[in-house]
């Protein structure tokens, strides 16, 4: 990759004559179009990508897709646990009906609608911490790798400690500490969850970027750029960062499902997102909460637990496939 990219940059700068003499037979292929071609060959990665796109659309158009209001309780069937549509039952209130494809929960809410809306929290909780982690971790990693010295030392000691403190334990302690505070109640606890999930994980990204930077700054093309008078800022933004993007993107693809799982675990433990009773809230349900509810009532209505558990399994699987595909395409050194 590092040998490809400078060539690609040279091509960008002088699109005309040079390119024609170098590669006269085929059109220019940038790193990104190469990566895309490689990614496209991985069928599972494409399947995962399509699934994620559909999930995004589901989250955005949840009101149009969900047949019922996900918060509205139905007193008439409360406590009856209507079964999933294909399961028959003598009691007509419990018998499955396609009006409620996955049945209803303890207070008569439609499980399918809650599942559809639940995709919102999972995606938000996956992507926002990922963005924060990159915004914090990448600059610090670049600084540590490029400048070295004290920043580097502090970063390395910090990551050592973070590695020793299991993430889930820290998240649990963090959630307990701040959940009841005013800050912890913002957006039903979503804001706190963003902070919790970002606060330690940036160190991993920073360490990764530091390693890549250390490696890249010794490369000939960086030396050449320095020799032709490029300043530190230009070296970092034009030469080091673009070449470090591959591993960063791959890491990001694996941060998202991790955060989704942690949200589910924390909600399952009852210290994640708070339940919302407002009928118009944009984030009415979370898969983790549904699993928590379902783990108490799965004997009466198994799909209350199976549906959200499958949803989480599928989304993490999709991210793994996409992440694997991205790694093959962008980070050839890190093959697993």
């Amino acid at each position: 990759m590092s040998t490809l990219a400078p060539a690609a940059q040279a091509v960008e700068k002088e699109p005309g004559a040079r390119l024609a003499t170098l590669v006269p037979t085929r059109p220019s292929r940038s790193l990104w179009s190469n990566a895309w071609a490689q990614f496209r060959r991985n069928k599972m990665a494409i399947v995962g990508l399509i699934y994620l796109v559909l999930l995004f659309l589901t989250a955005i158009f949840a009101p149009a897709i969900a047949p019922h209001n996900p918060v509205q309780a139905d007193v008439a069937v409360a406590g009856q646990f209507r079964q999933a549509a294909w399961i028959d039952h003598d009691n007509p209130k419990k018998a499955g009906s396609w009006d409620f494809p996955l049945g209803t929960d303890s207070i008569g809410r439609d499980v399918f609608s809650r599942l559809v809306y639940g995709s919102r929290i999972s995606l938000v909780v996956g992507f926002i911490p990922m963005a924060v982690i990159l915004l914090v971790g990448v600059p610090i990693g670049l600084a540590a790798g490029f400048v070295g010295g004290r920043t580097d030392n502090v970063l390395m000691r910090l990551t050592d400690i973070v590695y020793a403190f299991p993430a889930l334990l820290f998240f649990i302690v963090m959630q307990i500490a701040f959940r009841e505070t005013l800050f912890g109640q913002l957006l039903n606890g979503l804001v706190l969850l963003f902070v919790t999930l970002s606060i330690v994980n940036w160190t991993g990204v920073a360490r990764l970027v530091r390693g890549t930077t250390l490696e890249l700054k010794e490369k000939e093309f960086v030396e050449a750029a320095r020799a032709s008078g490029a300043g530190s800022w230009r070296l970092i933004t034009r030469h080091v960062l673009p070449n470090a993007l591959g591993p960063i993107i791959v890491a990001a693809a694996f941060i998202v499902p991790g955060a989704i799982i942690y949200e589910a675990v924390l909600s399952y433990l009852g210290i994640g997102v708070r339940p919302d009773v407002s009928l118009t809230t944009p984030f009415p349900s979370s898969w983790g909460q549904m699993i928590q509810d379902g783990s108490k009532t799965w004997n009466s209505q198994p799909w209350m637990l199976v549906a959200p558990a499958m949803a989480i399994a599928l989304v993490t699987l999709a991210f793994t496939f996409v992440g694997d595909g991205l790694r093959d395409a962008l980070d050839p050194r890190e093959q697993l």
């Binding site: 799965w298 558990a309 989480i312």
Partner: peptide, 21 residues
Amino acid sequence: TIGVSVPTFVSGLLLLIFLSK
């Protein structure tokens, strides 16, 4: 790949349901 990506608490719960139901 499934084992790596699906969290144990999800596979544990699904297994629990599958065994008992």
